[in-house]
Design a protein around this nucleic acid. Structure first.
Length: 883
RNA sequence: GGGUAGUUAGCUCAGUGGAAGAGCACUCUCCUCACACGUGAGUGGCCACAGGUUCAAAUCCUGUACUACCCACCA
């Protein structure tokens, strides 16, 4: 075994082993299932830190449950990623062939995407393997493969037949670059500096005018009213009158609507129902005309020739110029407001009227809210429950149709006459092209051109991966659904997580998961979100290469407090790597010594204090670690593992074990090794969910020819060896050792020099029996060559003193003693102790404290005072003997 | 405008009623036969601010400030 661990030597080997042996493949059996479905990464995706975190956390949870004996399943897969994928391939074709998708046509373009997919493969799945993810590779699903496609069609048809899916011309969010409608949550809002233009609208047959403020002057061309608040006294006499729209002289009325804010701008709103959500609602309430002036390319239509065909930006320039010339512009203020942008290409969203398919989500939402309210779904952390519930309120119907080509084509068929023109018959929802129209008996059909929102198929994911589309009574579906937990970042909570709940309830009558574990987002050193445009992305593959996969995973686990964003940098990875090295070397110590004693049976027999102590500490830590895993506090688990292994197992137990390891008596050696090995194995198990590679490697070296750690079950915690008193006893010994070490360090005693120690007790020897019994610990770790025990002696010359509860320790230092230094040290100690006395006395003199505090607390405080007083007395005594 | 979270050592973060913690960084020690990716010892904090509850507050309550994210019909 090499001195320095090299993860490259075994990481690949272990993953290969797991894959070849189908370690993570499973089927329904008699055990309890524990299921997770992966948030399917986009097929175009490459592993970034967000993926690394999300999947590491899922892997940790799955691996831990497997150790506990659950029948665990983690389902892998990818998402076809509608717009995102189409955009990427479109760009590629443009670059390689100089063609647009329209040049190629729908069929050829789709062929290109499929070819491209085969060529590039699913890179991200290989990267997940490198990360060590224990996914069941026999179940790789894709949102557009056959089974998933069936599920999508089935879901659509069911919803359509229920009357929940309908087509209508409505105001939608339109991305002119992607040339498609988007749902409300696919729009991201950004603050942008702009202007507020104040425009005069002259009243008909009057010299008066009314002024309105707008951020979009070009839309005056599509105004169909002005609106004021009915309670606004300034305008009460104008309601019902008419004005002329500047530049085009069209007549519109002044109406009142309570949504208008009296205090914003001039209190007068120009109403453009075709291109603004609020205006659209005002128009509906007031039965206004709707005039569309922007088309799906973002160009002006239905406007005077002067503006016709201009882009929105150009039109704005021209309109404001013309308004200025015509003296209609009162003023222009600077103004910052938020502007909607496409979440895939950041193009400004244009609200416009368009015929689209919508899904009525009203009832589903109600039930999804109920699931959270009745605590059928738990959020971790709980604070996400409220935002989740709030989201469902005021939720508009979901626009599910997209005008792109890559995706699930809407399974709607329109019958046509012989000439190929659409008839007036009702459209049919069907898996395949219908044979005959039930109304007109036509046998000719055309399919709807649109495809479904990519999130429609994602929403079905927890049921579609279990072949719901093919068979509602699928064995796997019955066994593995509902899944156990969904692990996700909060950025897709609404886009995806909430919708899975809606669909799960709709189609399975049961929520898709009982727990939602919401983790934070990874940020860079400056606290900024990692993004390609900022150039601050840290590539997890490089980190794996540089520090090892286990180190990456451990660093991520340690930082993953539920719901909290995390900053992570190379120092975290380095610290984790150092820990891996520590695990490696501690194991090496155990293994080297194990070799000398041969085989051990798997039992432990604690003999002395350190044995009882470390086992008791282990019981405490193991309990905490298990609880942390179960409650998704992965960071706590990682911390506890680190703390137990490094500061307890290595720093104390291994160091103390060396006394017995050095023994020539084979039985003594075996005895201490049995505990070293047992605890190492148990700890490796507890660590293995986070760091599967290194633990697998060491486990196998410890257990040649035995089951791999992944297939082992957690050892029972050795509760029967729990010893509360061992903690206190050991702490006393540790205190003595640390105090001696500190003094040695302060007095500059060479580290290698062995010194003597005189233990002096005033109360009799039984009080320090613990110290007497374990003097060899002190000798070993404080580098003491001999210890003498005395009663009531005075401080020897040229010695330093340490004062503890029942004992003082004199260290004859001869030429190393620096009287002045020792004096200063003891004076400092006095000051410190006096402060303690002052503080504690104050508390004890408080009547209310004595009256109201619990007895144990009072006792504790009194003991502190007593101890401090004795200490002062003894230090003073020592000071006298200094010279 | 509404919501959520955060503010603890130079940095990254734990700690959620009874004596301020870790890792990294920094200072000193030691290449001691598991580990220099290491050992041992330190330096460093009126726990954002102001009130309140309590015998006792970093911890509970109220408010303020700042930061981040989310939502909204920001004309």
């Amino acid at each position: 075994m090499e001195k320095i661990f090299d993860p490259k030597k075994f990481e690949e080997k272990w993953y290969k082993y797991w894959i070849e042996n189908k370690t993570f493949s499973t089927k329904p059996n008699k055990n309890k299932p524990f299921t997770i479905v992966i948030p399917p990464p986009n097929i175009t995706g490459h592993l970034h830190m967000g993926h690394a975190l999300n999947n590491t956390l899922q892997d940790i949870i799955i691996r831990f449950r497997k150790l506990q004996g659950y029948n665990t399943l983690w389902v892998p897969g990818t998402d076809h990623g509608g717009i995102a994928t189409q955009n990427i391939v479109e760009k590629l074709i443009k670059k390689e062939e100089g063609k647009t998708r329209h040049d190629l046509g729908r069929e050829e373009f789709l062929q290109k995407i499929l070819k491209w997919r085969i060529k590039t493969g699913e890179v991200i799945l290989d990267q997940l393997k490198k990360l060590g993810c224990s996914l069941d590779w026999d179940r790789v699903a894709f949102t557009m493969d056959e089974s998933r496609s069936k599920a999508v069609k089935k879901a659509f048809i069911q919803l359509f037949n229920k009357g929940l899916i309908y087509k209508g011309k409505r105001l939608v969010n339109w991305c002119s670059r992607c040339a498609t409608a988007l749902s409300d949550i696919e729009v991201e809002y950004e603050h942008e500096k702009s202007n507020l233009w104040y425009i005069k609208y002259p009243l008909i047959n009057s010299k008066e005018y009314i002024v309105t403020a707008t951020t979009r002057p070009e839309t005056i061309l599509g105004d169909t009213a002005l609106a004021v608040n009915p309670g606004d006294k300034r305008y009460i006499n104008f309601i019902g009158k008419s004005v002329k729209i500047p530049l085009i002289d069209r007549r519109i009325k002044i109406i009142s609507d309570s949504i208008i804010d009296k205090f914003f701008g001039t209190g007068v709103v120009k109403v453009t129902p075709a291109h603004d959500v609020t205006d659209n609602e005002i128009a509906r309430r007031n039965k206004l005309k709707i005039i569309e002036i922007i088309d799906t390319n973002g160009k002006m239509i239905n406007v005077p020739p002067r503006y016709q065909g201009l882009s929105v930006e150009k039109a704005r320039e021209k309109v404001t110029g013309d308004l200025n010339v015509g003296n209609f512009l009162v003023k222009t203020d600077d103004y910052t407001h938020s502007v909607g942008k496409c979440y895939r290409c950041s193009t400004k969203i244009e609200p416009l009227m368009s015929e689209q398919w919508f899904l009525n989500v009203h009832d589903m939402s109600k039930r999804a809210v109920e699931a959270a309210n009745s605590e059928k779904i738990f959020f971790h952390p709980q604070s996400w429950k409220k935002p989740y519930i709030l989201w469902f309120k005021n939720l508009r119907d979901w626009c599910i149709s997209r005008q792109i080509w890559w995706g699930h084509r809407i399974p709607i068929y329109y019958c046509t006459n012989e000439k190929g023109n659409r008839t007036n018959c009702e459209p049919l929802a069907s898996f395949d092209k219908p044979k005959e129209c039930p109304h007109c008996k036509s046998k000719n059909f055309i399919q709807d051109d649109d495809v479904l929102d990519t999130w429609f198929s994602s929403a079905l994911w927890p049921i579609s991966v279990f072949n719901w589309g093919e068979d509602e009574n699928d064995k796997d579906l019955k066994y593995f659904y509902p899944t156990s937990v969904l692990v996700t970042g909060h950025e897709i909570l609404y886009l995806w997580v909430a919708r899975m709940v809606q669909f799960g309830i709709e189609f399975m009558k049961e929520i898709p998961y009982n727990n939602i574990f919401v983790h934070g987002i990874i940020r860079d050193k400056q606290g900024k979100k990692m993004s390609k445009s900022l150039g601050n992305v840290v590539d997890p593959l490089k980190i794996m290469d540089q520090y090892g996969t286990d180190a990456l995973r451990f660093a991520l686990a340690q930082a993953a407090a539920p719901g909290r964003d995390m900053q992570i940098s190379n120092t975290s990875f380095l610290a984790a790597k150092n820990f891996m090295n520590k695990i490696w070397n501690a194991s090496r110590f155990v293994l080297v010594n194990l070799k000398e004693v041969g085989k051990l049976d798997n039992t432990i027999h604690p003999i002395e204090l350190s044995d009882e102590w470390i086992i008791t500490e282990f019981i405490g830590s193991a309990t905490k670690i298990k609880r942390a895993y179960e409650s998704y506090n992965i960071d706590h688990a990682a911390r506890e593992i680190y703390d137990f292994f490094w500061t307890k197992y290595c720093d104390w137990y291994i160091e103390l074990s060396k006394i017995r390891i050095a023994s020539t008596n084979l039985d003594i050696k075996k005895q201490v090794l049995s505990i070293l090995v047992y605890l190492l194995k148990s700890t490796l198990q507890l660590m293995s969910p986070i760091i599967p590679f290194i633990t697998s490697e060491i486990w196998q070296k410890l257990n040649k020819n035995e089951k791999i750690i992944v297939e082992s079950f957690l050892f029972a915690i050795p509760e029967n060896f729990y010893s509360e008193s061992s903690i206190e006893k050991m702490n006393t010994i540790q205190d003595v050792i640390i105090k001696i070490r500190t003094l040695r360090s302060e007095m500059n005693i060479p580290a290698t020099m062995q010194i003597e120690a005189l233990f002096n007790t005033l109360d009799g020897n039984d009080k320090i029996r613990n110290i007497r019994e374990n003097e060899n610990y002190i000798k070993q770790l404080a580098k003491i060559k001999s210890i003498q025990f005395h009663k009531n002696i005075t401080k020897p010359k040229n010695s330093a003193v340490i004062i503890l509860k029942n004992v003082e320790i004199f260290l004859p230092l001869e030429e190393f003693i620096d009287i002045e230094k020792e004096k200063v040290r003891l004076m400092k100690e006095i000051t410190f102790t006096n402060q303690e006395i002052e503080k504690v006395t104050l508390r004890l003199s408080n009547e209310n404290f004595i009256k109201k505090a619990p007895k144990t607390e009072i006792e504790k405080t009194k003991a502190r005072l007593n101890e401090a007083r004795i200490k002062i007395e003894r230090i003073n005594k020592s000071l006298k003997f200094l010279i």
